[in-house]
Design a protein around this nucleic acid. Structure first.
Length: 513
RNA sequence: GGCUCGGUAGCUCAGCGGUAGAGCAGGGGACUCAUAAGCCCUUGGUCGCAGGUUCAAAUCCUGCCCGAGUCACCA
């Protein structure tokens, strides 16, 4: 009886470092998708969370003089505050240290072991402790870890581990990729994954015999490898194999996920290993996996060593999180790398947000106050405003991650409204006493701005709300589009209440530019 | 080295077989409701290079140059 809901996820974030702008990017994209879906379908379920196991965490904890659990507990508020700073409306937040997750991972392990998809084997090779990685002899550089940021000594390890029979799914994965060329996007990532499948898969070790900070192997030694653990969050969070029947019903309603949003660096885990694991568990693969690109800063890769990591808290503080959300999704096509520079943010802020949108609201409200006694006039038709099919196009672009197209479409209405003012010249209509034409023009502006508030709400929730308030409407612009995006909904007589500019001029010049 | 993607106006990008496009930036203009914003007009490109296919190529094919990514457990 229950309705299907749109299920969208972000990666769970590895808490070994601080949140940076890239985390905000993926999360904002997911949030816009979730918010839009709530206005166009009925329900969305939006999951994000944190990845807390692994050796790096254990070491950081030791350095901090804390037990791993206490250590990760201390980090969580910082990560959750990122969600607050960016007005993220996640429905759930999973931690891999949650009891529900640990139980689910162990259950998955047992099921796969019973089915023969997990088997014991010996794993040996050159191991870099820092990177938690086995490297083949051929990869080593001067006998050291080939990771340019590591370069530590490696040691020969040989241990009894459990292996996942990934190779058994090679053919099925290939067939799935061929049958669903759109299931991994962008195309470039799809191609790379396909190439890996065509070159053949080997089984992978999914436990670490010598580590202790992780989920214990059921009835065995060691812990489950952090990656195998992490992927399962998408189902453990929504009640897979839960003892609670309500939770199990949630799972039935949500799985398979509509969209896993990921960073492009983790595509292999999500498009090759993850479907195979799900198939092993008798579950369906996610409908789509969409990878976003990297953000560079002033054309350089962001890295801690360069000290050029953009702090998402600081940037939101300076420009407002709405403006940063807008910038991230408007500046470049999703899936493509793009450069983050303060000049670019300032440009978008001033040109698109301040001059086009903010000023449109401001000049409209001034005129409504001057010419219409501060009230929305009687409804008039939409004249030539480009609203036909607009809602439908945005509703289609967003779930496909074409945020840029969506915003460009919306901005055509912004531009058209500005243009209409200049062409209609309400001040002249006023002088000549052409009240009917004046009122019609002012109505179109109010109604057009109402549309904009509704359409922009998923992208800029706070600014959209403020637009809504200044226009004098009750409640919120977060409304079902089927009802709200019809022309003529703005009620005659609504009192507008003009406020401070929506996107005031930035006080300070760009620093360090 | 193999493979993948990209190289189009100063910048960010769209177009992907039929007379070169948008936004921003630059230049000029008319206006005044407005956050000196908006509106109108406009400068600007041998579509990386060289061949080929075609009546017709930015768009298809080949080679080359440049940049990025990836090549198996790197969260």
């Amino acid at each position: 009886m229950s309705q299907r809901a749109f299920y969208v996820t972000t990666p769970i974030y590895y808490v070994s470092g601080n949140p940076h702008i890239g985390h905000a990017y993926t999360t904002v994209a997911a949030d816009v998708m979730a918010r839009t879906t709530r206005c166009t379908h009925e329900t969305a379920h939006f999951l994000t969370g944190t990845d807390e196991h692994g050796q790096k965490i254990a070491e950081n904890a030791r350095n901090a003089g804390l037990e791993p659990q206490a250590f990760v507990d201390s980090l969580i508020p910082r990560w959750k505050s990122l969600l607050d700073a960016y007005q993220i409306t996640n429905d759930d937040f999973i931690r891999t240290t949650d009891e529900r997750h640990e139980r689910g991972v162990q259950r998955a392990f047992e099921i796969l072991r019973e089915r023969g998809d997990i088997y014991p084997g010996k794993y040996e090779g050159w191991y870099c402790t820092n990177d938690e990685t086995f490297w083949p002899e051929s990869k080593l550089i001067d006998g050291r870890c080939p990771n340019p940021e590591c370069r530590r000594e490696v040691k020969w390890l040989s241990e009894q581990d459990w292996f996942f029979r990934l190779s058994a799914y090679n053919e099925r994965l290939l067939a799935h990729f061929k049958a669903h060329p759109q299931w991994v996007r962008p195309q470039r990532v799809y191609n790379e994954m396909l190439a890996i499948l065509e070159s053949g898969l080997e089984d992978i070790s999914i436990t670490r015999a010598t580590l202790s900070w992780g989920i214990p192997v059921p009835g065995g030694e060691g812990v489950i490898y952090v990656w195998f653990d992490a992927l399962l969050n998408y189902i453990t969070a929504i009640g897979w194999e839960s003892p609670d029947t309500a939770q199990r019903a949630l799972f039935e309603r949500l799985w398979p996920a509509n969209v896993h949003l990921i960073g492009k660096e983790i595509a292999r885990f999500h498009t090759i290993i993850w479907p195979a694991v799900l198939w092993g568990l008798g579950l369906a693969e996610p409908t789509s996996v969409i990878a976003n690109g990297w953000l560079t800063f002033n054309d350089e890769k962001m890295s801690k060593s360069k000290g050029n990591v953009v702090d998402p808290f600081e940037i939101a503080q300076r420009f407002t999180s709405d403006a940063v959300r807008y910038f991230l999704l408007r500046e470049a096509p999703f899936g493509q790398d793009f450069n983050f520079s303060e000049e670019a943010v300032v440009r978008r802020y001033q040109a698109d947000l301040g001059n086009d949108l903010g000023n449109l609201l401001n000049r409209t409200l001034t005129m409504v106050e001057k010419y219409c006694d501060g009230r929305v006039p009687a409804p008039a038709d939409a004249a030539n405003l480009p609203i036909a099919g607009l809602a439908g196009r945005v509703a289609a672009s967003v779930p496909a991650c074409n945020f840029r197209d969506a915003l460009e479409d919306i901005w055509q209405l912004v531009t058209a409204l500005n243009k209409m003012i200049d062409e209609s010249k309400p001040w002249e209509l006023k002088k000549r006493g052409e009240t009917a034409a004046l009122n019609a023009c002012m109505y179109r502006l109010c109604e057009g701005l109402r549309w904009l508030a509704v359409l922009l709400h998923p992208f800029m929730p706070a600014k959209s709300q403020e637009m809504w308030r200044q226009l004098g409407f009750a409640q919120t612009p977060a409304q079902p589009w089927a009802d709200a995006l019809r022309w003529g909904v703005a009620a005659e007589g609504t009192h507008v209440s003009k406020g401070a500019p929506l996107f005031p001029h930035l006080e300070t010049a760009v620093e360090g530019a």
